[in-house]
Amino acid sequence: MKSVLIVDDSLAVARQLEKIVSSCEDFKVVAQGRNGAEAIKLCQQHKPEIVCMDMNMPVMDGLTALRNLMQLTPELKVVMVTSLGGVGDKYTEALRLGAKDVISKPFEKDTVLKMLRRL
Protein backbone atom coordinates (compact mmCIF):
# COMPACT_ATOMS: atom_id res chain seq x y z
CA MET A 1 0.00 0.00 0.00
CA LYS A 2 1.46 3.36 -1.06
CA SER A 3 1.31 6.31 1.32
CA VAL A 4 -0.16 9.56 0.00
CA LEU A 5 0.03 13.15 1.27
CA ILE A 6 -2.71 15.53 0.07
CA VAL A 7 -1.97 19.27 -0.03
CA ASP A 8 -4.69 21.77 -0.96
CA ASP A 9 -5.89 24.99 0.69
CA SER A 10 -9.44 24.02 -0.20
CA LEU A 11 -11.07 21.80 2.44
CA ALA A 12 -13.59 20.71 -0.17
CA VAL A 13 -10.94 19.51 -2.63
CA ALA A 14 -8.80 17.87 0.07
CA ARG A 15 -11.86 15.94 1.22
CA GLN A 16 -12.81 14.91 -2.30
CA LEU A 17 -9.25 13.75 -3.03
CA GLU A 18 -9.07 11.82 0.23
CA LYS A 19 -12.32 10.06 -0.63
CA ILE A 20 -11.01 9.11 -4.07
CA VAL A 21 -7.56 7.97 -2.89
CA SER A 22 -8.96 6.00 0.07
CA SER A 23 -11.47 4.23 -2.18
CA CYS A 24 -8.57 2.26 -3.69
CA GLU A 25 -6.90 -0.35 -1.48
CA ASP A 26 -3.51 0.33 -3.11
CA PHE A 27 -3.25 3.77 -1.46
CA LYS A 28 -3.48 5.21 2.03
CA VAL A 29 -3.74 8.92 2.90
CA VAL A 30 -1.23 9.60 5.69
CA ALA A 31 -1.73 13.36 6.14
CA GLN A 32 -3.22 16.53 4.69
CA GLY A 33 -1.67 20.00 4.38
CA ARG A 34 -3.12 23.40 3.45
CA ASN A 35 -0.13 25.06 1.76
CA GLY A 36 3.36 24.44 0.38
CA ALA A 37 5.15 25.08 3.67
CA GLU A 38 2.98 22.46 5.39
CA ALA A 39 3.70 20.07 2.52
CA ILE A 40 7.45 20.23 3.24
CA LYS A 41 6.94 19.78 6.98
CA LEU A 42 4.51 16.88 6.55
CA CYS A 43 6.80 15.15 4.04
CA GLN A 44 9.60 15.18 6.59
CA GLN A 45 7.27 13.84 9.31
CA HIS A 46 5.36 11.18 7.36
CA LYS A 47 7.74 10.36 4.49
CA PRO A 48 4.93 9.65 1.97
CA GLU A 49 5.69 7.94 -1.35
CA ILE A 50 3.24 10.14 -3.28
CA VAL A 51 2.18 13.80 -2.88
CA CYS A 52 -0.97 15.19 -4.55
CA MET A 53 -0.57 18.96 -4.39
CA ASP A 54 -2.39 22.08 -5.56
CA MET A 55 -0.47 24.93 -7.28
CA ASN A 56 -2.39 28.05 -6.27
CA MET A 57 -2.11 28.19 -2.45
CA PRO A 58 -1.45 30.89 0.16
CA VAL A 59 1.76 31.05 2.28
CA MET A 60 3.79 28.96 -0.19
CA ASP A 61 2.52 28.05 -3.66
CA GLY A 62 2.72 24.52 -5.04
CA LEU A 63 5.51 25.10 -7.56
CA THR A 64 7.81 26.59 -4.90
CA ALA A 65 7.03 23.65 -2.61
CA LEU A 66 7.66 21.21 -5.49
CA ARG A 67 11.09 22.76 -6.13
CA ASN A 68 11.98 22.38 -2.43
CA LEU A 69 10.60 18.86 -2.17
CA MET A 70 12.57 17.68 -5.21
CA GLN A 71 15.79 19.03 -3.67
CA LEU A 72 15.08 17.36 -0.34
CA THR A 73 13.69 14.05 -1.68
CA PRO A 74 14.37 13.59 -5.41
CA GLU A 75 12.69 10.15 -5.45
CA LEU A 76 9.37 11.57 -4.18
CA LYS A 77 6.49 11.18 -6.66
CA VAL A 78 4.55 14.44 -6.87
CA VAL A 79 1.33 14.91 -8.85
CA MET A 80 0.08 18.49 -9.19
CA VAL A 81 -3.72 18.77 -8.95
CA THR A 82 -4.63 22.24 -10.15
CA SER A 83 -7.06 24.52 -11.92
CA LEU A 84 -4.00 25.92 -13.74
CA GLY A 85 -3.22 22.65 -15.56
CA GLY A 86 -4.37 24.11 -18.85
CA VAL A 87 -1.88 26.99 -18.66
CA GLY A 88 0.97 25.66 -20.80
CA ASP A 89 3.71 27.54 -18.94
CA LYS A 90 2.62 26.30 -15.52
CA TYR A 91 2.17 22.74 -16.80
CA THR A 92 5.65 22.75 -18.34
CA GLU A 93 7.25 24.28 -15.26
CA ALA A 94 5.71 21.59 -13.05
CA LEU A 95 7.10 18.80 -15.29
CA ARG A 96 10.52 20.47 -15.46
CA LEU A 97 10.66 20.77 -11.69
CA GLY A 98 10.07 17.03 -11.43
CA ALA A 99 6.31 16.54 -11.09
CA LYS A 100 5.31 13.10 -12.40
CA ASP A 101 2.00 14.38 -13.71
CA VAL A 102 -0.46 17.27 -13.68
CA ILE A 103 -4.19 16.74 -13.16
CA SER A 104 -6.52 19.58 -14.16
CA LYS A 105 -9.44 20.67 -11.98
CA PRO A 106 -12.25 19.80 -12.25
CA PHE A 107 -11.03 16.22 -12.09
CA GLU A 108 -12.82 12.89 -12.23
CA LYS A 109 -12.25 9.96 -9.89
CA ASP A 110 -11.08 7.64 -12.67
CA THR A 111 -8.51 10.18 -13.94
CA VAL A 112 -6.99 10.58 -10.48
CA LEU A 113 -6.78 6.83 -9.80
CA LYS A 114 -5.44 6.09 -13.28
CA MET A 115 -2.63 8.62 -12.80
CA LEU A 116 -1.79 7.39 -9.30
CA ARG A 117 -1.61 3.79 -10.49
CA ARG A 118 0.78 4.81 -13.27
CA LEU A 119 3.35 6.10 -10.71
Binding site: A12, S83, L84, G86
Partner: peptide
Protein backbone atom coordinates in the same frame (compact mmCIF):
# COMPACT_ATOMS: atom_id res chain seq x y z
CA UNK B 1 -16.56 26.81 6.48
CA UNK B 2 -16.80 23.80 4.15
CA UNK B 3 -19.82 25.24 2.30
CA UNK B 4 -18.14 28.63 1.76
CA UNK B 5 -14.94 26.86 0.80
CA UNK B 6 -16.82 25.06 -1.98
CA UNK B 7 -17.74 28.42 -3.55
CA UNK B 8 -14.10 29.52 -3.30
CA UNK B 9 -13.00 26.29 -4.95
CA UNK B 10 -15.60 26.73 -7.68
CA UNK B 11 -14.25 30.18 -8.59
CA UNK B 12 -10.70 28.80 -8.34
CA UNK B 13 -11.60 26.19 -10.98
CA UNK B 14 -13.31 28.80 -13.17
CA UNK B 15 -10.43 31.30 -12.90
CA UNK B 16 -7.79 28.63 -13.55
CA UNK B 17 -9.62 27.73 -16.74
CA UNK B 18 -9.91 31.44 -17.59
CA UNK B 19 -6.10 31.73 -17.22
CA UNK B 20 -5.70 28.74 -19.57
CA UNK B 21 -8.07 30.22 -22.14
CA UNK B 22 -6.39 33.65 -21.84
CA UNK B 23 -3.02 31.99 -22.55
Amino acid sequence: EVLDDSVKEFINIVCGNIAAKAA
